[in-house]
Computed example of a mutant assay.
Amino acid sequence: MAHKSHRQKALQAQLEGPREISVVKPKKVKALPVAAASMDIDDDEGVVIAQSGSASAEASASSSGFAPLSAAEQSSVLKNEFRRVPIPPHRMTPLKREWVNLYTPMVEMLGLQVRMNVKRRAVEIKSSGHTVDSGAVQKGADFVKAFALGFDVNDAIALLRLDDLYLDSFEVKDVKTLHGDHMSRAIGRIAGEGGKVKFTIENASRTRIVLAETQIHILGSVQNIKIARDAIVSLILGSPPGKVYAHLKTVGARMKQRF
C-alpha cells in the first residue's frame, strides 16, 4: 500500500506543477507568383487567405495538373466522335427507300455527317463543325437503331426532338418459356385481330410497339414503357384481352388526372 501511495503522490505532484508553454514560431511564407497580388498573407499564423474566386479556381486547376479546355479544343473533341450502327439484312431495302427521310433530320437538326456503308450494311454517323450538342451522335445512333428495329421514321424521329424517350427490347421467352403453338397463341394475343390489341396498348400507354417474331420492342418514356410492358406480360401469361383493356383504362384515367 505504501508503494501505491507513493505513486499517487508522484502523479499529484506532476499535475499540480507549473505547466510548460511551448512557443511555436510562425511559419515562413514563401514568395508567391503573380496570383498572390489578390491574396492577403497573415504573418502571425502563416495562413494564406484567398480574396477572389478566380484565384482559388486557378489554384485548384494547378493542383490537379489539368487546365480547363478552351472553346476551340471542345469543338475539336466533338468533331472526332464517330458511331457505326449495323442494319439487319431485312431492313436494308426499307433503309434505301426511306434514306432521304432518315438522314435529313440528322443533318438539319443535329448538324451530323451521315452516310450509308453498303458493304458493311451499316449507317455511319460522325460529328462535324456544325454539331453543337455533345449528345448529338448518341441521339442519331438511337434514331437509326430504332428504324433498324422496325419503327416508322415518323415515330423514331421523336428520339431526336425529345430527351426522355428510350428503347426497350425483350423476348417472349424472358417472360415465360413457350414452344410451338403456345408461342404462336401468345404472339396472337399481343397483336390481336388486325393489330387491334397492339394499337389499344399503344394509345393507352402513349408508346410505339414493334412485334418482330418472338422479340418485342417498345419506344417511349420510362413510365409509359412500364405500363405497356406490364400489359404485354399479362397477355403472354394468359390473361384475356378484356381484363387487360380494363386495367389500361384505369391507368389511362390516372395518367390524365396526373397531367
Rank of each mutant, 00 (worst) to 15 (best):
T177M: 15
K25P: 03
Q51N: 05
D163S: 06
P105K: 12
I209V: 14
P105R: 06
D133R: 14
M116I: 03
A204T: 04
I21M: 09
K249A: 15
H217E: 00
G111M: 08
V144Q: 02
E81L: 14
T207H: 08
K196F: 04
A212K: 08
F82Q: 09
F199M: 07
R229E: 15
R258D: 00
R258Y: 01
L235M: 03
K198I: 13
S75T: 03
L149E: 12
A36V: 09
K196M: 11
I201A: 00
E58Y: 14
K226I: 05
A253G: 01
D230S: 11
G192E: 06
F259S: 05
L32I: 07
T93P: 00
H247M: 13
Q223T: 03
A146L: 01
S60G: 11
H247L: 13
F147H: 04
V107I: 13
I209D: 00
E171G: 14
V153C: 13
G17S: 14
G195Y: 06
L178K: 01
D181Q: 11
S62N: 04
D181W: 04
V153K: 01
L235F: 03
P26G: 11
S128N: 08
E16I: 04
I157L: 00
Q138Y: 04
M183A: 10
H90I: 14
H130S: 11
A57D: 06
K256Y: 10
A36Q: 14
L235A: 06
Q12C: 02
S70K: 01
S22M: 08
Q113M: 05
I218L: 06
A36I: 01
A72R: 15
L160M: 14
K25Y: 12
Y245S: 06
V210W: 02
D142T: 12
T104E: 08
I216Y: 03
A36S: 10
P18I: 00
T93Q: 06
Y166F: 11
L102F: 09
G238N: 07
R19H: 04
E16W: 01
S75K: 00
Q215P: 00
R121W: 10
Q113T: 04
V132S: 09
V24S: 07
F199K: 04
H90W: 04
K96V: 06
I190Y: 13
E213I: 05
P26V: 10
K4N: 09
G17D: 15
S52W: 13
L110F: 09
G192I: 02
K96H: 03
V244E: 01
I225K: 05
Q138D: 10
D152L: 09
M1P: 07
P33Q: 04
G195L: 02
R189Y: 10
V251Q: 03
A50G: 10
L110A: 02
I41H: 07
H130N: 15
E58G: 08
L11K: 12
V100R: 11
A191I: 02
A246G: 07
E20S: 08
G238Q: 06
A148L: 04
A61G: 02
N154G: 13
E98C: 07
V47W: 10
K173P: 00
G65W: 05
T207I: 00
T177F: 12
E58K: 03
P86F: 14
R258W: 07
T207W: 03
H3R: 14
G65Q: 13
V144C: 10
R7L: 15
T104S: 08
R189S: 03
E98A: 08
